[in-house]
């Protein structure tokens, strides 16, 4: 049985649906990448997993099974015991996550004491142990530093250390390296991979970058306009994408072999949640769309090693 099972999760803002039925599973110790462009609903999906949708949005359907319970319907006080404790989250910008007027140590002790009844000395010991774990140099001295005294990469390491305080089973990382430089990104991603492998923690990585997922995750879910349109093993999807959108995303990446020529582009832009077309949300941008695409909303169905939500999937092979 999977550690986390998200089934047909829907989030609505008034009459508009931001998530239109998102399903995926996460096994123990598995790393899943959720990829999509801005507005695709990937962060929304991550927030919905831990029921962090704020008014006027609400979870309007589906379930999130975790440890035999449904997080989508759990009362707030029960949810608080799960969030930050068994499922932790890290966000894009470490400067926004950390409180600028408190030392790192204070923030770590505060977090621990919110979840566990332990003394300051014990909390401090655990905090320094976690700072060591994420390779913050001279952890003991850093315990008394303020966030502004650290570089961006170190700050993100501190944020990761805070998320690890309660030894979570799942870590949800929402664009954890987008605000960082490429050399620092490589450091942070290698760290996250090592932590998952050493502790058996599962990770849901939200990103817009397929290459980052390719190098860090075992599974991939591609989102478009509030739905997962392709899901499966990372290598299978990247080698043989079945959905025209996934294929377009991969082809749009600049590469050595595209030198001097033009990139294959996807025309148009992704529709907002209030302007979704009838039928498949991708059909106005799709080269393979026909009359059927304008009426039927395709659901995920198995195809080879992956699941694809496209009525033409499987028939596209010849046209690669």
């Amino acid at each position: 049985m999977p550690l986390l099972e998200v089934d047909n999760l829907e989030v609505s803002f008034g009459k508009h649906q931001a998530l239109r039925g998102v399903s995926f599973t996460l096994e123990k110790g598995e790393r899943l990448g959720i990829v999509g462009e801005s507005g695709a609903g990937k962060s929304m999906a991550a927030f919905a997993v831990i029921n962090l949708i704020s008014e006027p949005g609400r979870i309007s359907g589906g379930s999130v099974r975790f440890d035999g319970r449904d997080l989508a319907t759990l009362p707030p006080e029960e949810l608080r015991k799960v969030r930050g404790d068994r499922i932790a989250m890290i966000f894009q910008d470490p400067m926004m996550t950390l409180n600028p007027v408190l030392t790192i140590g204070t923030q770590m002790v505060e977090t621990l004491q919110a979840h566990r009844e332990i003394s300051f000395a014990e909390a401090r010991r655990i905090a320094i142990e976690k700072l060591d774990l994420v390779a913050v140099p001279s952890a003991e001295a850093r315990f008394d530093s303020y966030p502004h005294e650290l570089s961006g990469g170190l700050r993100q390491r501190v944020v990761i250390a805070i998320s690890l305080l309660c030894d979570p089973e799942i870590i949800i990382a929402d664009e954890p390296t987008t605000a960082l430089d490429v050399t620092i990104q490589a450091e942070i991603m290698a760290l996250l991979i090592r932590l998952c492998e050493d502790t058996g923690m599962g990770m849901i990585l939200i990103t817009h970058d397929l290459a980052v997922v390719s190098e860090s995750c075992q599974r991939l879910a591609v989102m478009y306009a509030g739905k997962v349109i392709e899901e499966g093993a990372v290598n299978a999807i990247l080698q043989a994408p079945q959905h025209p959108y996934t294929r377009g995303l991969i082809n749009a990446l600049p590469q050595m072999n595209s030198r001097g020529g033009l990139l294959t582009q996807i025309r148009g832009t992704m529709p907002g949640i209030s302007e979704l077309p009838e039928g498949c949300a991708f059909h106005p941008r799709c080269d393979f769309a026909n009359a059927a695409c304008k009426t039927a909303i395709p659901e995920l169905r198995p195809l080879g090693a992956q699941n694809v939500a496209c009525i033409h999937a499987g028939a596209l092979k010849e046209t690669v």
């Binding site: 390779a135 570089s151 170190l154 050399t183 490589a186 450091e187 290698a190 090592r194 290459a211 390719s214």
Partner: peptide, 23 residues
């Protein structure tokens, strides 16, 4: 260092852990 850090599809940029570097 820059070249080794660029993630690529099927690449190895995150395979070795690095010490925290600071500009």
């Amino acid at each position: 260092l820059l070249l080794s850090a660029i993630p690529r599809i099927g690449g190895q940029a995150f395979s070795a852990e690095r010490a925290p570097g600071e500009i």
